[in-house]
Design a protein around this nucleic acid. Structure first.
Length: 256
DNA sequence: AATGACACCAACCGCTATTGG
DNA sequence: CCCAATAGCGGTTGGTGTCAT
């Protein structure tokens, strides 16, 4: 006995999306806004799983998506963010306006991973491969300083021997990276675009329900619960979805 | 021109987290 | 508090295009 399937698999399309399906989905979301993906396919007249509709919209049809090649800056940022966040593609995507987690994940797996490997850098640990072979433990625990270091400089000198390492303070993970760390919803431009898509009735409902995203305090933008210590905005309990691990991960990072 | 290898990326699957009754 | 429903995330797969032989 398990959870019921997310959709009636027997009557759902699983092949590539057609132009007509795309149009239907876009038209429906323009008219009704996002949300309730489970019921959306039926309401929109699509023979698709809700999950599939959500993915199609998020990864392909959203009006604010930036298509095309990644710029060198984006490339660089992805590497740095990955060294900090690991495979948290959605968090990385949140720092790259117009890019989706899926797109970044694909780009990482097909381009960046290979590029790092060719430079002799382990794409998982972001350390020179020789180090990885020495079985260095990488920890994201807040009190166990990570030995990761910024790795985009392929000519970095080899690290000191283990004994010496113990006496050294861990280097800042990305000294030149100003994350401008407010883990806010992707970006206001996107928010605005999405707001445009929502019909007035939906917007009104959201406002009444306290779902407006404007005016989020810094604490909340970092994933703190509203009302918790550090929160300076309203009292509604609202969690942005940052997982505890991520919260811990950000502790100790200097906010600018 | 044929074909095999490789690269890319859209989409699916399975799992976890969150929410609400 | 428990449990089912739902949303969202990350890993993986399969189809398609491109390049080399």
């Amino acid at each position: 006995m398990g959870r019921s399937p997310c959709c009636e698999k027997a009557h759902t399309n699983k092949c590539a999306w057609t132009k007509e399906e795309d149009d239907r989905l876009v038209a429906y979301i323009r008219a009704h806004g996002e949300g309730c993906w489970r019921s959306l396919p039926k309401a929109a007249g699509l023979l698709r799983c809700g999950k599939s509709c959500r993915l199609r919209w998020i990864n392909y049809l959203r009006p604010d998506l930036k298509r095309g090649n990644f710029t060198a800056d984006e490339d660089d940022l992805i590497v740095k963010l990955h060294s900090l966040l690991g495979n948290k593609w959605s968090l990385i995507a949140a720092r790259l306006p117009g890019r989706t987690d899926n797109e970044i994940k694909n780009y990482w797996n097909t381009h960046i991973k290979r590029k790092l490997l060719s430079r002799g850098i382990d794409p998982v640990t972001h350390r020179p491969i020789a180090d990885a072979a020495r079985n260095v433990t990488i920890s994201f625990q807040p009190d166990a300083p990570s030995q990761q270091q910024l790795s985009d400089d392929a000519e970095a000198p080899p690290p000191p021997p283990p004994q010496q390492q113990q006496q050294l303070k861990p280097p800042p993970r990305c000294p030149d990276l100003n994350l401008d760390l407010c883990i806010s919803p992707p970006c206001h431009k996107e928010e605005e675009d999405q707001e445009l898509v929502k019909p007035a009735a939906v917007k009104r409902e959201m406002l009444q329900a306290g779902h407006g995203t404007l005016g989020l305090c810094f604490g909340c933008s970092l994933g703190l619960q509203k009302g918790a210590a550090g929160c300076t905005c309203g009292s509604n309990s609202h969690f942005l979805g940052l997982r505890v691990g991520m919260l811990l991960d950000f502790r100790g990072l200097e906010m600018k």
